[in-house]
Design a binder for these strands. Sequence first.
RNA 1: GGAGGGGUGGCUGAGCGGUCGAAAGCGCUGGUCUUGAAAACCAGAGGAGGAUCACCUCCCCAGGGUUCGAAUCCCUGCCCCUCCGCCA
Length: 425
Amino acid sequence: MIEPARLRRDIQGVASRLALRGFTLDVARFEALDTRRRDLQAETERLRNERRTTSRRIGAAKAAGEDIAPLVAAVGGLGDRLSAAARDFDSVRAELDEFSRSLPNVPDASVPPGRDESDNLELRRWREPADFNFTPKDHVDLAPSLLDLEAAAKLSGARFSVLRGPLARLHRALVQFMVDTHVQDHGYEEVYVPYIVDRAALLGTGQLPKFEDDLFAVRGERDQFLIPTAEVPVTNLVRERILAASELPLRFVAHTPCFRSEAGNYGKDTRGMFRQHQFEKVELVQVVAAGDSWPALEELTGHAETILRKLDLPYRAVALCAGDLGFAAAKTIDLEVWLPAERRYREISSCSNFLDFQARRMMARCRSPESGRPEYVHTLNGSGLAVGRTLIAIMENYQDGDGAIHVPDALRAYMGGVTRLDAAA
RNA sequence: GGAGGGGUGGCUGAGCGGUCGAAAGCGCUGGUCUUGAAAACCAGAGGAGGAUCACCUCCCCAGGGUUCGAAUCCCUGCCCCUCCGCCA
């Protein structure tokens, strides 16, 4: 959420910053709502004050044995006027709240301008893509016996996978390797969290109220959803908390499945397991003091990059342009892995600094050691990494042209001695 | 699923429908004392929103209701605990 005082102070400035990301802020609507809000709030509070003062006087008069009838008569229509004003105030406030919660975060000044993916700014590359002396296959053609998309389609429809034998194991090995690296080398605390969350959690991280169509709702009497990312349950661990400064930074790593309806992506990445309704991800989440989030973004991105480097996968880092930025992010650095069959880099991790945007929505604060007052924390997260996509990258980059896929050295310990997968049918 | 008991400030825990944002204890912060610490003593301190920055309003799980007035009474929901049943 954008700071309400900032909206009131500089709505035009915010509007022009949001325009960079292609968002049109309805300035007139905000100003009209806020004017109404101010008037109704003043009126409501004035009436409440009057009621309180009079009621206390009645109490005092009664205790003194005086006649309270005239006083009671004096507050006559007050109740009705108050409830009318309060009702209007509540509805305007709800409208304003919905409006504010629908505004995306303001892009940081360092975010490159641009409309879409093609305007993203490449920051660095690591390892040039290898030259194959044969035509590399994509992951679908590589492992027909181990990646069974038809079986998955029979069970659940499009955009699901069934992995078999050593490929399923490689998938699991990746999870263990990633989590272990982040815990042992990078100092994260591993957490296990629910995969079903309520509306409040999704409001906190920004998936709601705007993106309900992207989620799978759970049927039943409860209003719950499958998590689209571990970001939701993990970041919400600090919701409505006032942390001690000494507790920060918090660094969590969680492995969870993620569920996305992919509504609006019907024609996109339909082949293979690149874009799925269900996939595994190892997620890094940091909660830091307000001044520390920019270095933390660099650090967290580096932690995700470490996984790619240990797996010896060619990748590049790009800064998302304003138009490509996610709803809650002030800045995002994507890591894109090289896929030889596609001959291009594809997203495998997205590392974002949300500044206090999520913290405001969640009321996640920390007590300032200087002032002793609560102030909003900053939150960050990034994939470390998307497991299914990493599996694709290994399959495609580690193929040998004879129908085999070699196991990266870093994963050997997790593969029980298996060093190559015979993936052909 | 059935039966019962609870949800009050960082924690424990009081609170006749009427200055109750709320006693007390612990913990916390500052001070006195001390070489330093502890102890003792003194003092201080909740959160949110608004504002004409003097103040005002809201918050005792949440949402309704009764009342001139609700932490306190009534209803609903949520959560926690105990027992029984079932169960990965």
